[in-house]
Simulated assay, not measured.
Amino acid sequence: MVRVILVDDQEMIRVGLRTIIEAHPDLSVVGEAADGIAAVRLATETDADVLLIDIRMPGIDGVEATRRIRQQRTPEVLRILVLTTFDEDENVLRAVQAGADGFFSKGAGPAELTAGILQVARGHNVLSPTAVNALVAHVAEGGRAVADPAAASLLASLTPREREIVEAIVRGLDNAQIAERLYLSPFTVKTHANRAMAKVGARDRAQLVSLAVQAGIRP
């Protein structure tokens, strides 16, 4: 059973999320918080697997709460999934830098959300297509019009297959979708993606996308 903490300043949203999560046989809600300070306290006091946190809240926001939680709880102990409307692209990059393990839009459907929680709990990094688009937009607008030579040099170390998979990740595809398009198994796709991240020094897929966009790869 995957144990989830819900953090959102709106009670109605927490009620809706709890209903969706507890309808799944493999998920349960073990705690709730309405602000970032309470989220940090709950994350350190509650035995949970995944923290589902809104990015905008009173006091300290979801990004700062994530940063503080990461100082006490590593990804091996507690996974963090950020929920946002993505109306400000820089929030995605800030959350990546703070140590979040995944991003989902508040517009995600119940099946997509529960699948994302389970994926994060299993140690995967989850980026919804909306999150990828927001991250790409922010890096492209705040970065360079041309490829960053340093980033391009890092990506040059990838094999043709690894680069092909990185390009698919930048387009917002998950392992299953990439596997279907390239006639590979999801495990093989994951292996290539992990090797690509190791070669370029990316902690997770979000950082891999950021580096790829700086290197000139676009959706």
Rank of each mutant, 00 (worst) to 15 (best):
E22K: 09
I53F: 09
L93C: 03
I5S: 06
V2R: 03
V146A: 12
Q214R: 15
A198P: 01
G107H: 12
P219R: 11
R14P: 10
E45R: 15
P219M: 08
L81H: 01
D26F: 06
G143F: 03
G216I: 09
P129Q: 11
H138K: 02
A100T: 15
P160W: 02
G116C: 12
I21E: 13
G107P: 06
I21M: 06
A95H: 09
R41V: 14
T19M: 15
E32Y: 00
S185W: 06
K199E: 06
S128D: 13
T191Q: 10
A156W: 02
A156K: 01
G99K: 05
H138L: 02
A152R: 12
G99N: 11
M197A: 04
F187D: 15
A151L: 00
R68P: 01
N125Y: 10
A140N: 10
I5H: 06
I55G: 05
H24R: 11
S153K: 07
R3N: 15
L208H: 05
P149H: 07
A151Q: 01
E164M: 08
T84R: 00
I60Q: 14
E112L: 13
P75E: 11
R181I: 02
T74S: 13
Q214T: 12
V213N: 11
E22H: 09
A33K: 06
D8P: 08
T46M: 08
F187A: 14
R218C: 13
S185M: 07
R70W: 07
A65K: 06
Q177S: 12
R3I: 06
T84N: 05
V30G: 09
A131M: 03
I55F: 03
R56S: 15
G172E: 03
L135A: 02
D47V: 13
V120I: 15
L81W: 07
L158V: 04
A156Y: 03
G172H: 00
V200D: 00
L155I: 04
V139F: 03
Q97G: 12
E90M: 07
V120Y: 01
A134M: 01
P58V: 12
A179G: 05
F187L: 10
V82H: 00
A152S: 13
I69L: 10
A215Y: 10
F104L: 15
D26V: 11
R18W: 08
G172A: 04
S105H: 13
G216F: 04
T44E: 13
A145R: 14
I217T: 08
N125I: 00
G116N: 14
Q97P: 05
T84C: 02
M57W: 08
A151I: 02
G201E: 04
E167F: 03
F104S: 10
M12V: 15
R171V: 03
D54W: 12
L52N: 05
A137E: 13
L182G: 04
A134K: 00
A215E: 08
A176Q: 08
D204E: 13
I69W: 06
Q214N: 11
G142I: 05
P75D: 09
P160G: 06
